[in-house]
Design a protein around this nucleic acid. Structure first.
Length: 125
RNA sequence: GGAGUGGGCCAGACGACCGCUGAUUUUUGGAUCACACCAACGAUUGGAGGAAAGUCCGGGCUCCACAGGGCAGGACGCCGGGUAAUCCCCGGCGGGGGCAACCCCAGGGAAAGCGCCACAGAAAGCAAACCGCCAAGCCUCUGACCAGGGAGACACGCCUGACCAGAGCGCGGCAAGGGUGAAAGGGUGCGGCAAGAGCGCACCGCGUCUCCUGGUAACAGGAACGGCACGGCAAGCCCCGUCCGGAGCAAGACCACAUAGGGGGACGUUUAAAGACGGCCCGUCCAGUCCCCGGGUAGGUCGCUAGAGACGGUCGGCAACGCCCGUCCCAGAUGAAUGGUCGUCACCCCUGCCCGUCCACCGGGACAGACAGACAGGGGGACAAAACCCGGCUUAUCAGCCCACUCCGAGU
RNA sequence: CGGGGUGUGGCGCAGUCUGGUAGCGCAUCGGCUUUGGGUGCCGAGGGCCGGAGGUUCGAAUCCUCUCGCCCCGA
C-alpha cells in the first residue's frame, strides 16, 4: 500500500487554514481538535497547528511528527475529498507518545472508508 | 579508604521495515525547433547541539552618503599581553576567604565642585565638648585649725581675718576615661604634665609632583622628610581616560503581479520648508512636492552556506594564542525536514533464602549479620532542537569516564 | 529580529526615581450593635517584597546575573 505523505498532501498557506476553520466541522478529543471541510474530487489533505502553549520547541516538534506519522499510516484508509486541520491542545505536550497515538486513531477513525473486506473497527482497537 | 579542589571527555550502539528533506543522477510525462525548466517514481549519498537555548556582549556581511564635525547619550575602567573585536581569554599586581589544593573582587579620582550619612549621640565633617579631669584666682556655704575683737571670772559659743579641705556658681585649660553609633581627627608602651595631649621618644601604621634598587608596567623593598594634616558613599550627581554613526538577512538584489487615485493635513514658487539622516545641531545631497488615514499586493529566485572552517603535526610563547605544512568538505528547512515502530546488546537503579498447589496475601521454617559477583524479573536514559554566519558570556542538564592536585585516616 | 511593561499578605494595587517605619481596599478572624442574618463600628492576625550575588553601616528601593508572565512593532 502507499504510505507516502508528500508536501502536496498538506495544507501550507495561511489562506488554506482560514478556509477550513471558517467553513469546516469541528470534533474534539482529549488532546486534539479536528476541523474538516468537504472538497470535491481531491485527495485528502492535512494541516497541523501546534501553538506555543503546548510546550517548548522540542515538545511541539514531537507532537507535529506524531500527527504526521499517524496520518501517513492511516491515509490509504481515509476518504478522499477532505481537508483536515488538527489542532493540538496544551495537554498534548505533557503526554507520552502511545497515549497520543491512541487518541489520534480514535479521532481519524470517523472518516475511514467503510471497507467490506476488513473488520477495521475491531482491528484498530 | 574518606572529604574536597581544578580541568577535560561523552551525550548509548547495531539492525529491520515504513517515511520526510538537500545534492547528484536514470527513466517516464509535460513543455520546447532544441536546451533550460516543471512533475512523478527509482538509485547513490548527506541530514541538529554542547549548549543549536537565553539574546547579555563583540565582530563579519548588507543597505543607508566612501560614515564627516560638534553636542547629548551610552558602555567600559589595576598593569601587561592575545584577538577581526569584546563587558571575553591568558599571565601578573593589590585586597579578601579557606588548614590546603584553590576560589572571589565594576579594583581610576573624595586636596575640582555639589549632595547624603536615618535612629542614637554633646558633636556626623568642622572641629567641637555632655558626663568627666585639672592648677591659680573671685564669690557663697560647710567643717577643722590659728590670730584678733567685744561682753564676761575663764573657756566654748558670737563677730572679723588668714590658711587648709570639701561642695556649688561663673571665667578658663584638657580630650586620657565614660557613653552613642557602621563610622568620633592614628595604635601600643614609656616619659612628661596641675590634668592631659604626637607634647617628646621607641616600635607599628599613614602620607609624599622626593630619592635609590628590582620590574615593560601595575607594584614591591628601602631611604629621607612630615608629628598625622586627608572619615565614608562616585553600583548618588559628577570629573578624568578609552571606545561607540544608524538599522538589521522580514538587511538587501532581481523577476512576476499591481501601480487605482477616495478623505484629511503641511509647505512653497525670493530666503526656505519637508525628506534622505529614526536623539539634536552643523555640514552634504536632493530639487517641486511631501506626510497621514483608507485601499491593494505580500508569490518566486538569489542572498544561503568553503568559513576569523574542521582535524593532525612542526616551530615560537609560562599561557591565551600565533606562523607554517598536510589532509578533508561536514545541515540548509521556510505552516518550517533530520522521524515512527520493533528487535538484539551494552550502561544505571530497585527487588531477591526455603517450604506449603502456578501467582499474591497469609502461615511455618532456615540463617549471627553485612557486602560483592553471577543469574532472574521489573524500571530508567537528562537538558534542549539550526532559521545569515562566526567569537565569547550566562543559564539548563540523567548516568558515566579520564587526568592533576590538596587535606584527613590506616598500612608498608 | 527589535522594543516595552510587570512580579510586594489569599486577591487587586501603592511604596522604588530621592536607600533607614513595608501601607491601602476587599477578603479572614474576634468583639459590639440586631430576636437572628446583612449593614455599620471597633480591634487583631497574616509579608524573609520572583530567585542568586554584590555595593553600602543599612537594600522592596542602587548594580549585575537569572526565572516566569503579559504586550507591541517589522
Amino acid at each position: 500500500m502507499d504510505y507516502r505523505f508528500p508536501k502536496s498532501a498538506r495544507l501550507l498557506t495561511s489562506r488554506e487554514f482560514q478556509r477550513v476553520s471558517s467553513q469546516g466541522r469541528r470534533s474534539t478529543t482529549r488532546y486534539f481538535t479536528l476541523l474538516t471541510r468537504d472538497v470535491l474530487s481531491d485527495p485528502i489533505r492535512l494541516g497541523i497547528t501546534v501553538s506555543r502553549k503546548v510546550g517548548n520547541a522540542v515538545q511541539r516538534s514531537r507532537v507535529k511528527r506524531l500527527i504526521r506519522e499517524t496520518f501517513r499510516l492511516l491515509r490509504p484508509m481515509l476518504k478522499s475529498g477532505l481537508e483536515c486541520v488538527i489542532i493540538a491542545k496544551p495537554m498534548a505536550g505533557q503526554t507520552v507518545n502511545a497515549e497520543l497515538l491512541r487518541d489520534l486513531r480514535q479521532l481519524l477513525a470517523r472518516h475511514e472508508i467503510p471497507d467490506p473486506t476488513a473488520l477495521h473497527g475491531t482491528e484498530q482497537k
